[in-house]
Amino acid sequence: MSEWSIVWEARSTILSGLWLTCWLFTASILGAFMLGCLMLYLLERGGALAWLLRGFINTMRALPFLVLAYLLYYGLSQLGLRMNAVTAGLLAMIIYHGAYFAEILRGSRLVLPPGSIEAAQAHGFMPGSIFLHIILPQLLLRTRPLIGNQLIYALKDTSFLAIITVQELTAAANAVQATYFIPMPAFVVVILLYWAITACLELAVSKAGIFGKARGFENV
């Protein structure tokens, strides 16, 4: 029992790790989501840039997240571009998961019936307006479960940043166990925290299903 009270004593370390994990996660998925939408828009416009983007997305999909984090944190320093671990980690999260969001949306874009887009063209919408008001909302309603999965992958990927010295939740567990020699309770608490965040995300994503359901979008 006393081991558990030590974790309670050390709660400020755990909480600061939790805070950093939540903050990194939120900032990076917001950034990644916007980057993903932007990439989709550029893919939509076609041309050489779209071709390059496809290559970039496929590259990201064939790499472990940690390799990108290494590249930004260690690799770029060779070119004189030094970032602190949190900045490099955040940037890596945004770029990596941005590519995955773009791929999810692109997959759904390929099977979006063209009728609603033609109707918008016929009504005089500009391409950017069509993307924002007609295409994107439908894709988001259609890809909700996949986006939900991606959020959970993103949450878990934040733990890799412990390896490049970011003091997030997993690093906090390690710090607590190293100080007090209580690996079991420290990690059990942290794993339960990850579990709780995942459960909240899953609940939120499933609740977001009402938007699709109201519009007849389930099972499309």
């Binding site: 959970i152 567990a173 390690n174 990850y194 579990w195 995942t198």
Partner: peptide
């Protein structure tokens, strides 16, 4: 729900 980094470290230490 458990990140692999966390799980690996946990098993190694616990």
């Amino acid at each position: 729900a458990t990140p692999l980094v966390t799980l690996v470290l946990f098993l190694f230490l616990a």
